[in-house]
């Protein structure tokens, strides 16, 4: 069904955009005045159409960074730009997906997917596309089901469709597959990649799964915790489709593990 792919491509009038982060930092101030540096000033460029992973142990500020790109949090210092425009608040051009699918429980799957177009007042034009996404995600038989009737994988696919139907210029994924079992997770990775291939939406993926980062992304930003900063940025020079047991895949994996001091006990001594 190549026709489907081209249709989505042509309907996507919105071009992917680049992200430019300059000296972005985040400091939280508790009520008692104690300050915690969540993120040291960091700079990062994401090219239009690129898929970049942010990996690192919990507490390294990767989710904070993603929330700042989404506009849900303001940086303490520094600037964030989407294309040529500074990011000053949340907007439809930056779609977000959490580990918890966060589907609206009072809406059917179809209504959930329609939320973006409805919020933008463009529901009528998008009806056909909503149907298309229901079909592409295999959720057609569940269009009129409520979220609590879905399995974890289906709920996450509905959340993905809800984000994609809005044609974001940047897709922000905050450990979107973290709560899924290994098998569902691997299939969902393929699915996200397929959507990404058709649309080439600039994507930032926060994950703590090294395999996922290597399997999916063009570049991997490795972060260190407390305070969060960029340790290293690594290219993934593997052509797609990738194979999880490709020797180069495994070599890259070993490299990242070593960098994060997670290779094994004997090397830590």
């Amino acid at each position: 069904m190549v026709t489907t792919q081209t249709r989505i491509e042509t309907e996507a009038e919105v071009e992917p955009a680049s992200l430019r982060l300059r000296e972005v930092s985040k400091t939280y101030r508790r009520a008692d005045g104690v300050e915690t540096v969540a993120l040291e000033p960091l700079s990062l460029d994401v090219a239009a159409g690129e898929m970049v992973a942010l990996i690192g142990p919990s507490g390294c500020g990767k989710s904070t960074l993603l929330r700042m790109i989404a506009g849900l949090e303001r940086p303490t210092s520094g600037t964030l730009r989407l294309g040529s425009r500074p990011i000053e608040g949340p907007g439809a051009e930056r779609g977000l997906m959490f580990q918890d699918p966060s589907l609206f429980p009072w809406k059917t799957v179809r209504r959930n997917i329609e939320t973006g177009p409805a919020a933008r007042g463009a529901l009528r034009e998008c009806k056909a596309e909503v149907d298309e996404y229901l079909r592409l995600t295999g959720l057609e038989p569940f269009a009129d089901s409520y979220p609590h009737q879905l399995s974890g994988g289906m709920a996450q696919r509905a959340a993905l469709a809800r984000a994609l139907v809005n044609h974001p210029r940047v897709l922000l994924l905050d450990e979107p597959l973290g709560a899924l079992d290994q098998f569902t997770r691997m299939r969902m990775q393929d699915e996200v990649i397929r959507f990404w291939k058709t649309r080439r939406t600039t994507t930032v993926l926060v994950t703590h799964d090294i395999d996922e980062a290597i399997y999916m992304c063009d570049r991997i930003v490795v972060m260190t915790p407390r305070p969060g900063r960029i340790d290293r940025v690594m290219d993934v020079p593997l052509e797609r489709p990738r194979h999880r047991n490709d020797p180069r895949f495994l070599k890259l994996r070993a490299e990242i593990l070593e960098m994060m001091h997670l290779s094994g006990e004997e090397e830590e001594s």
């Binding site: 069904m1 792919q5 592409l136 699915e191």
Partner: peptide
């Protein structure tokens, strides 16, 4: 198919009884 339809072993879509 452009995008595979996945997970056929899903719970029934029937409204909760």
């Amino acid at each position: 198919m452009a995008i595979q339809v996945l997970e056929t072993s899903a719970p029934s879509p029937a409204r909760h009884d």
